[in-house]
């Protein structure tokens, strides 16, 4: 078979995650609003970068992001656009309002509709999201749309010849698995695969003019029942600890002195 290079379309799933301040309070089944911040999911930042690099290498002609989230998260979506994605899709609907925990099955239904409409050759997602850390959406989506897949990818060869992605999967204990995956595929991207860029001022300006298309369930042809989900978050609490940690108090000189004493007792630096 002759080698050929086709231009690809890449879809990147991008999530805005909630970040929590050091000191916080729990109200019901959530952290009280005033202790929450928002950020582009760390893993998705690497996924966006990988897609943009594939485009810069001439292997992709379009990078589209897809996000499930309310209007508030458009700033985060613009961050991905500022880093080089071409356009964005944001899925939101009244039916999603007030859902505490959108489960993997529900996310899969929504993203599946977008994959079917956009027909990408490659979907990049993050390994997990930093807030609820399910780590399952990418692979679930692949199964639902009949794509191939690879989870926890920390290396991707930028040639994609013959419709095959050669990847490294990061296993436990410093072992990497080298795997060839047929396209179309979903890869869940691990941190460290590349060096995510900072958006340039020009990128930020351009991002304001890029398409950000909002889709409701009806637009996607997804039934409201499909996103109801079977999981319910019923409690949130601070983990019990069995810790008997000794905390040294005082100024830095005092605490450093206490620690130095401990280290000397242990024979460190003697």
């Amino acid at each position: 078979m002759a080698t050929h290079k086709t231009m690809m379309k890449i879809l990147v799933t991008v999530k805005e995650v909630a970040t929590v301040e050091d000191e916080f309070e729990i109200e019901g089944t959530a952290i009280a609003d005033q202790y929450l911040g928002a950020d582009l999911n760390e893993w998705d930042d690497y996924a966006v970068e990988e897609a943009v690099q594939l485009q810069e290498a001439g292997l992709a002609d379009e990078v589209v992001t897809v996000t499930i989230g309310p209007e508030d998260c458009e700033q985060t979506i613009r961050q991905a656009l500022a880093k080089g994605a071409d356009r964005a899709i944001r899925i939101w609907d009244d039916a999603l309002e007030g859902v505490d925990l959108l489960d993997v099955g529900a996310k899969t239904e929504l993203l599946k509709a977008v994959v079917e409409a956009e027909e990408p050759d490659l979907v990049l997602s993050g390994v997990q999201s930093g807030d609820d850390s399910f780590g399952a959406t990418g692979v679930s989506l692949a199964s639902a749309v009949d794509f191939q897949w690879g989870a926890v990818v920390n290396g991707l060869e930028h040639d994609l010849e013959d419709g095959v992605a050669s990847v490294r999967r990061e296993l436990e204990g410093g072992v990497e698995e080298l795997t060839d995956i047929d396209l179309p595929a979903v890869l869940t991207i691990q941190t460290g695969i590349n060096e995510p860029r900072y958006a340039s001022l020009r990128g930020i300006r351009q991002a304001q003019r890029k398409d950000l298309d909002v889709q409701t369930l009806a637009d996607l042809g997804v039934d409201a029942g499909a996103v109801e989900g079977d999981l319910e978050l019923t409690e949130m609490y601070e983990p019990e600890t069995e810790s008997d940690v000794t905390v040294w108090e005082g100024g830095a000189d005092d605490t450093a002195g206490q620690l130095a004493e401990l280290l000397r007792e242990k024979g460190v630096a003697q």
Binding site: T19, F24, D131, D230, L231, E232, L233, T234, M236, Y237
Partner: peptide, 14 residues
């Protein structure tokens, strides 16, 4: 857990 282990949650599967 959620938020990198800062909180723990209970999830019911119906």
């Amino acid at each position: 857990e959620m938020y990198g282990g800062k909180v723990e949650t209970t999830v019911e599967v119906d």
